[in-house]
Design a protein around this nucleic acid. Structure first.
Length: 256
DNA sequence: ATGGCCGAGCGCCTCGGA
C-alpha cells in the first residue's frame, strides 16, 4: 500500500498535476492540502474517473484538505473535534484497516503574530485528539504539511532560519510531543542522515534550482504501521513541471 | 540588496503563504 501527501497550493490550478501524478506514481492513498476551493467546486468527477474515492473539506481562498483513495474510505472525520475552528485543516478516514489523518498545519506567519499562538494551540489540540485516535486505531499514519522543519538537517540554511517560524523551538517541541505519542518520521527512519532532502522551495530566488528548501511535509507512522514500512521518499519531479506547487509529494510504501 | 514568486479576490493592489 502506497500512501502519499502533497500540498498542491490550489487544486483549481493543480488538478492536471494531481491527475498526472496519480497516474505515474499510482498511490493507493493521496492526501492533499491547500485546496483553496469550496466544496461545491471540488473536482470529484475527475478524481473518481481516475479511480479514486474522495473525502474533502474546503473553504474559499484558504486551507482545505482531501483524502483520495482507491479503496473505500470509512469512518470519515472532518476537523479536530476538540477545537472549534472555521479553518478547514484536517480530514481523517480508515482505509484497509489503516487510519489516515491528513493535516494542513497552520503556518504561524511569525513569532510575534497572533497566528503563532493559534498554530501552537492547533498542535496541542491535534496532540490531545491523537491520543484517543491511536487507542481506537493502533495502525495510524499522520500525513500532511506540518509547517515544521523538525531539525536543522531539514533546513537549507539553519543559521538564516534560526528562531524563525517553521523552525522555532516551541514548534519543534510540539512536533516532538507528537513523536512521543509513539509516532515515527517515516523518511528519517529510513534515511537518518540524508542532507538537503526538502519538500518545499520558495518560488522566489530560484529556490528550487538552487535547492534552497525545507523539509516540512511529513509522514508519521504508529508502531504497527512502521512495522510494515518498506520505503519512503520525496518525489521532486512535480516541482519541475510547468506552473508547479511550491511543495512536492512525499510517499511511503507499506506491506499489505 | 530582507526583495525577488504565486494564488485568490468582484483586481489594476492587498493578503497569505513558508
Amino acid at each position: 500500500m502506497r500512501i502519499a501527501t502533497w500540498n498542491v497550493n490550489s487544486l483549481n490550478v493543480r488538478l492536471p498535476h494531481v491527475l498526472q501524478w496519480l497516474q505515474q506514481a499510482a498511490p493507493d492513498v493521496l492526501c492533499l492540502q491547500e485546496l483553496k476551493l469550496e466544496d461545491h467546486k471540488f473536482p470529484r468527477a475527475e478524481l473518481e474517473a481516475a479511480g479514486y474515492q474522495v473525502a474533502f473539506t474546503g473553504q474559499k481562498t484558504y486551507n482545505g484538505v482531501a483524502i483520495l483513495s482507491r479503496q473505500p474510505l470509512e469512518d470519515i472525520q472532518y476537523n479536530l473535534p476538540n477545537l472549534p475552528d472555521e479553518q478547514r485543516r484536517l480530514v481523517a478516514a480508515t482505509v484497509g484497516g489503516l487510519r489516515i489523518v491528513c493535516g494542513y498545519f497552520p503556518n504561524g506567519q511569525a513569532l510575534g503574530s497572533e497566528k503563532y499562538p493559534y498554530k501552537l494551540g492547533w498542535l496541542n489540540a491535534l496532540h490531545d485528539w491523537l491520543q484517543g485516535e491511536l487507542q481506537r486505531y493502533p495502525a495510524l499514519a499522520l500525513l500532511g504539511d506540518y509547517n515544521i522543519a523538525p531539525a536543522d538537517l531539514d533546513v537549507h540554511d539553519p543559521k538564516a532560519w534560526e528562531g524563525q517560524v517553521l523552525v522555532s523551538p516551541p514548534e519543534r517541541e510540539a512536533y516532538q510531543r507528537l513523536l512521543a505519542l509513539g509516532l515515527t518520521d517515516a523518511y528519517r527512519h529510513l534515511q537518518p542522515d540524508t542532507e538537503k532532502a526538502f519538500t518545499w522551495w520558495d518560488y522566489r530566488m530560484n529556490g528550487f534550482r538552487r535547492n534552497l528548501g525545507l523539509r516540512i511535509d511529513h509522514i508519521l507512522l504508529s508502531a504497527p504501521a512502521l512495522d510494515k514500512l518498506t520505503a519512503c521518499d520525496i518525489d521532486r519531479e512535480p516541482r519541475t513541471w510547468e506552473r508547479p506547487s511550491d511543495h512536492t509529494p512525499v510517499w511511503a510504501e507499506l506491506q499489505a
